[in-house]
Design a protein around this nucleic acid. Structure first.
Lengths: 204, 204
DNA sequence: TAACCTACCAAACACTTGTTAGGGAAGGAG
DNA sequence: CTCCTTCCCTAACAAGTGTTTGGTAGGTTA
């Protein structure tokens, strides 16, 4: 039989979808096997354990995400553009790894305790540093308001971006870029009407 | 032995905390019993099943939440004040029912399928109607911008409010009202600096 | 005193869980 | 053809799951 290396990836994708839909603990390996078209025991030819499937799903997602983030952060953009680039990159990753993002959101909190998933805590600290630095340099440069609690703002911005994974459906009426644009417009300019909105387009 | 009706409530609160921390499916009835100071089987003197504990936690939370929402919606406030009142009420409920909110967020999506938890879908439809009507009437009255997708805005606002339950800790440095104020300021006015922020406090 | 109720324990139940062991079918390589 | 690798199945395992049953300590009521 010829090797089909795509099979492993395919099983992992279906596992991610089931995990995202039902939750990791609520998902049985038999459900994954059913969805992937094989029997429960056969999963263990491809993977060590149920937990290592989860591990691989989350770690590959975070690795790819940080490649994008690092590119943005290394570009040396001005705070406003840096914020926009981070947000846009995030929505693109949600588009690409919707299931992984949903799993990350649901499970990461109680996984960070386990040593095996220590990289989750690392990633979270990295997020906080990247976002906080962007916001703080924006405050210093006069791009952002000075009267808002930066840490609160960070949490709001972070959460709103990532929970989008819970309702976003690829191929829907909004592209990731369009969602990012609307979101940035709301966060930067606010939803309240003011004069500038009556006369011209507020995008960037 | 004298009846202690507080015991049932106490066990339910303990269960809510464990559910919120570990997830419903990942929590065993023995863990709940340990945390509450009795044995697993003894839980079934107070409750029919593990599921009915979850049911009672979520339904009492939603009932109380909708009492507050209905009060706000019936007050006939102008859109901006109505939005502010809804947000503030939400943060107050997060303060009061942090565990229940966390559980609701994590589990509601895959519970809505079960007939027993049909009220979750009802509540969600109610949220959508309440928020959308507030936003739309604000657009119509000229309080809010007309160039934003109302449905997207609704999702952003809704999600950001409720995910706050994941990081909010009662007794911390921010009161629910303070968080609501900062959040409203961000959503309404945006984080970008503009002239009005240099001269006066933006909190209306 | 006796009957009764509340709140719990001890022990088991049937079932599901993740995981393993051994085997076998199908194709490629020699 | 024969060997070998890949991929999967069948069948079972031990541990853990939610739940039930019968019993009992101790306070309340009569």
């Amino acid at each position: 039989m010829r090797p089909a290396p795509g099979r492993r990836r395919q099983i992992l994708d279906t596992a991610a979808r089931v995990f995202a839909a039902q939750g990791y603990d609520a998902t049985t390996v038999r459900q994954i096997a059913d969805a992937a078209g094989l029997l429960a025991g056969s999963l263990y030819y491809h993977f060590d354990s149920k937990e290592s499937m989860l591990d691989e799903i989350l770690s590959t997602f975070l690795t790819e995400l940080w490649e994008r983030y690092d590119t943005v952060l290394a570009a040396g953009l001005r705070p406003r553009e840096s914020l926009a680039a981070l947000v846009t990159a995030s929505f693109r990753e949600i588009d690409r790894h919707r299931a992984a993002v949903a799993i990350y959101q649901k499970e990461s909190r109680h996984l960070t305790d386990q040593p095996r998933f220590g990289y989750l805590a690392d990633a979270q600290r990295g997020f906080e540093r990247a976002w906080l630095r962007t916001l703080e340099s924006g405050v210093a440069s006069g791009d952002f308001r000075t009267d808002l609690d930066v840490r609160l703002t960070y949490r709001f911005v972070r959460d709103t971006v990532w929970v989008a994974a819970s309702w976003y459906r690829p191929g829907g009426q909004h592209s990731p870029e369009e969602i990012a644009r609307q979101y940035l417009s709301m966060v930067l300019e606010g939803v309240a009407l003011r004069d500038s909105h009556r006369t011209h387009d507020p995008h960037d």
